[in-house]
């Protein structure tokens, strides 16, 4: 018996542009061009992701989302690999779990993941123990770069997901202020010759902060509050609004603590911004909170 058409008039599983595959023993039919991760439910499903963001084509550099595809010699990155007809995918197996555990350990033992979401849950899920590489294990620890009033760069927290580079470069802003420099364990996100941001071509759109998954890039306001111990997420609220500066009408999310705007983001699903803003929307919020009692 044929399946009923959906609301768009398509009959699931029969479109020439759909692909049928097996995921963990279940038959799944998805549109051609879908990635394995999307076929599994996308971000937030049971497959862990780190370098996969909402608005950037993933570089599949972190390798934490690996799955096993029958017939493939090596594991494949679910965030980037597109489904193929009759593919047989296992999202959990001994090899998969081992690879995820090791990626988490390798990152956890070399990078400060204290502000990265879900990591502790994944450590528990996969039995990862970053401490087993010993106290002398090499890390990317380094001083925080504070060279302007708007945002800081704490590369001790950088997992090299490439998202800031792509947001600054060809995927969004086309400023190309930063790129990966060096090679191997010495690879790092850098301006030319590591010049400060004020000496670079940075336009302070802050779109790199928006996509950073580990807190390596952070509003200076948030950084200062964390330094003084006054950053209290449980006392923070968000307010969605529209930027008042120009006629584009970018969606803003104002993050507020103690009736003071402490940072600004934009919803990544906003059809206007896709999470991107300009310097005015991102950092030009002071005028909204000039109050009689505020100094200056």
């Amino acid at each position: 018996m044929s399946q009923p058409a959906n609301q768009f008039g398509d009959v699931p599983g029969t479109s020439p542009n759909s692909v049928a595959l097996s995921i963990d023993g279940s038959e799944v039919t998805v549109p051609d061009g879908t990635t394995i991760l999307e076929a599994c439910g996308g971000k937030g499903c049971d497959i862990p992701t780190l370098c996969y963001g909402d608005t950037i084509t993933p570089k599949n550099a972190c390798r934490v989302c690996m799955v096993e595809v029958e017939g493939s010699r090596v594991l494949v990155p679910s965030c980037s690999r597109q489904v193929e007809a009759d593919m047989v995918v296992h999202t959990r197996s001994e090899r998969v779990d081992h690879a995820r555990k090791m990626v988490l350990e390798l990152l956890g033992s070399s990078v400060d993941l204290s502000l990265t979401e879900h990591v502790d849950d994944w450590y528990a899920e996969y039995g990862a123990d970053p401490s087993r590489y010993g106290p002398d294990a090499a890390t990317v620890a380094q001083p925080v770069k504070v060279d302007n009033d708007l945002y800081i760069r704490d590369y001790a927290k950088c997992i090299l997901c490439y998202q800031c580079v792509d947001a600054c470069g060809e995927q969004w802003q086309h400023s190309f202020v930063i790129d990966i420099a060096g090679r191997g364990f010495d690879a790092r996100v850098s301006t030319e010759n590591d010049v400060s941001l004020p000496d670079s071509a940075c336009v302070y759109c802050g779109n790199c902060i928006q996509v950073c998954p580990t807190g390596a890039l952070m509003f200076k306001s948030e950084y200062d509050m964390r330094q003084t111990g006054t950053w209290e997420p449980e006392r923070q609220t968000t307010t969605d609004t529209i930027c008042a500066f120009c006629g584009v009408g970018c969606n803003l999310t104002l993050h507020v603590q103690d009736n003071t705007i402490i940072k600004v983001s934009s919803p990544s699903d906003s059809p206007i911004t896709h999470g991107n803003l300009c310097i005015k929307g991102r950092f030009g919020f002071q005028h909204a909170q000039n109050r009689p009692d505020s100094a200056g």
Binding site: S109, S110, A137, L160, F185
Partner: peptide, 15 residues
């Protein structure tokens, strides 16, 4: 000689 792009090789070769 690791290019540094992916975690298993970038950190794995160091470990």
């Amino acid at each position: 000689e690791s290019c540094g792009q992916c975690v298993p090789c970038r950190v794995g070769t160091v470990r």
